[in-house]
Amino acid sequence: MKKNSLLSKLISAPHIVWAAIFIVVPLVMVVYYAFTDRNGDFTVENIKAMGYYTYVNVFLRSLWYGIIVTVICLVIAYPFAYVISNLAPKTQGTMVMLIMLPMWMSLLLRTYSIMALISDTGIINSFLEAVGIGRIKMINTPFAVILGMVYDFLPFMILPVYSAMTKMDVSLIETAYDLGANKRNVFLKVIIPLSRSGIVSGATMVFVPSVSTFFISQRLGGSKTALIGEIIESLFVKNNNPHLGSAISLVLMVLILICMFVMNRFGDEEEGAVMI
């Protein structure tokens, strides 16, 4: 038996070594770069810079957009998932496929399709002009960025919410009706709590990429709506200042960890309450 346990330690050794070198060390690097300057000396200047007006602004804007996008996705996805979870099983399969199809297309291509649709000479503006309303400035506005994010990340919300709804015990809903609950109460007190786990995982899957994206805001938002991802990208790729870039990444990582912790806590607690 002892030989066996030694072997079992050896068999996961390659993975442990891999995880140490390529997961732990890179994160240590981020911390190291965040607290050093170009000469490799210790400094807190990079972290201090996070207090500057521009960075605080960009952080707040990114978080704000992330929250708006998550809420819009939830509001659109929830009734949608509810309707398809009540369809015949075969139609449900087709529906899930229809949702997954755009999801499997590259995010870049989907963003590009939105870009072409709402650009100044795009199909919507040409149509508006032909009708006589005149062109509306859509691209390079906050609206465009939020539209792009909602369009890109909506499937990430629909699928987890839908799968939580299919796992829901239908007899609980029937019981609630039998006990005299009206539609509104059944929805608020039975259906929403039972699908909470799906909501939490959908919200995480939409929120994290929305807060940290750089491609969508770069292509759809122009210079006025710079988000945190764009700043990190330009610091690493264009301005060649990995120290400041690392500091921003570190703050972003901590912020997202806090948000996820709060969200998961919220999900667990409610689930526990339902169990009781």
């Binding site: 390529f22 890179p26 981020v30 990190i232 990995p242 870039g245 990444s249 972003l252």
Partner: peptide
């Protein structure tokens, strides 16, 4: 993006 830049740093 954080995974990307951390690997880049390494």
């Amino acid at each position: 993006i954080v995974t990307g830049i951390s690997m880049l740093l390494l």
